[in-house]
Amino acid sequence: MSVERECQGACLCGAVTLSVAVAQHKVSVCHCHMCQTWGGGPLLAIDCQDRVAIDGEESVSVYASSEWAERGFCRHCGTHLFYRLKAGDHYEIPAGLIDNGEPWKMTLQIFIDEKPAHYDFANETRTLTGAEAFEAASGSAGS
């Protein structure tokens, strides 16, 4: 049974701080081309559902990266703050943004069919292609 825990994070310049409630200490990895372009590699993210409080919202810029999702970043320092679904405000927060020392466990990799050959993760996880990820999310809010 997971225990919900409050975690804190901030952008590089400190203009934006986040407070997130995390029920499961799981990290998911997205290898899609959009995440690779956004961050120069895969997105390692924590699913925070809609339990995110943002302080310094006037410093947050949001980019509509698709018909269904948008990405937020600090307009001063460029730190990636979130990926969220437009419908329902389902948030994925970059794992490196919030408190260190949490007992995170990588459990899922999506868009495995778009992962470049120049890296691999050593731990075993569940993997989904892009089509499988969309299929899995079609019945519920997902990454």
Rank of each mutant, 00 (worst) to 15 (best):
P116L: 10
L85I: 12
V20N: 00
R84H: 05
E67Q: 12
P103W: 09
N123Y: 10
G40Y: 06
A131V: 13
A23M: 11
A122V: 03
M106R: 11
L97H: 08
E58F: 10
F82S: 08
P103S: 15
G139L: 10
G39S: 02
K115F: 00
C11S: 07
I98E: 03
T107H: 02
D89V: 01
A53V: 13
M106Q: 09
K105R: 14
S138N: 06
L44E: 01
R71D: 01
I112K: 10
A15F: 11
E58I: 07
L81V: 05
A95W: 04
G41K: 01
K26T: 12
M1S: 11
A69R: 12
I110T: 08
E57K: 12
I112F: 12
R126T: 15
C35P: 06
A10M: 04
D89G: 09
C35N: 01
S140I: 15
A23H: 14
K115L: 03
N123C: 14
C30F: 05
P116G: 12
M106S: 08
K26N: 12
E6C: 10
T127E: 13
A137Y: 03
I54M: 02
A122C: 02
C30K: 06
L18G: 01
F121L: 14
S143H: 12
V29D: 02
G130C: 05
S143V: 09
H31I: 04
Q24Y: 11
G78K: 15
R75K: 15
C30R: 04
H80L: 00
L81M: 07
G72M: 03
C30E: 02
G88N: 08
Y83N: 08
G78F: 10
C30M: 04
Q36D: 02
D47W: 02
A136E: 11
S59Q: 14
I54E: 02
C30Q: 00
P42N: 04
P116C: 06
T129V: 10
E57C: 06
A45T: 10
G40K: 03
A122K: 07
C11K: 05
D47H: 06
S2W: 13
T127L: 10
R71V: 01
E92R: 07
Q8Y: 06
D120C: 13
A15K: 14
W104V: 06
R5F: 11
D120A: 15
S140K: 13
E92I: 07
Q49S: 13
S66W: 13
V62Y: 02
L44K: 02
A95E: 01
T107Q: 09
F73A: 05
G88Q: 13
M34L: 12
D99F: 03
E6Y: 08
C48S: 06
D50Q: 08
W38G: 11
C74I: 02
T125L: 11
C13K: 09
S65A: 05
T79K: 10
I98H: 02
E132N: 07
L85W: 02
A117E: 14
G40D: 00
C30S: 07
D47S: 04
E70S: 07
P116K: 07
A45Q: 01
C77A: 07
P116V: 08
G9T: 09
S19L: 03
P103C: 11
E57S: 15
P42I: 01
V60K: 00
S59P: 07
H118F: 12
S143C: 14
A95I: 03
T107N: 08
W68E: 15
S59K: 12
G72A: 01
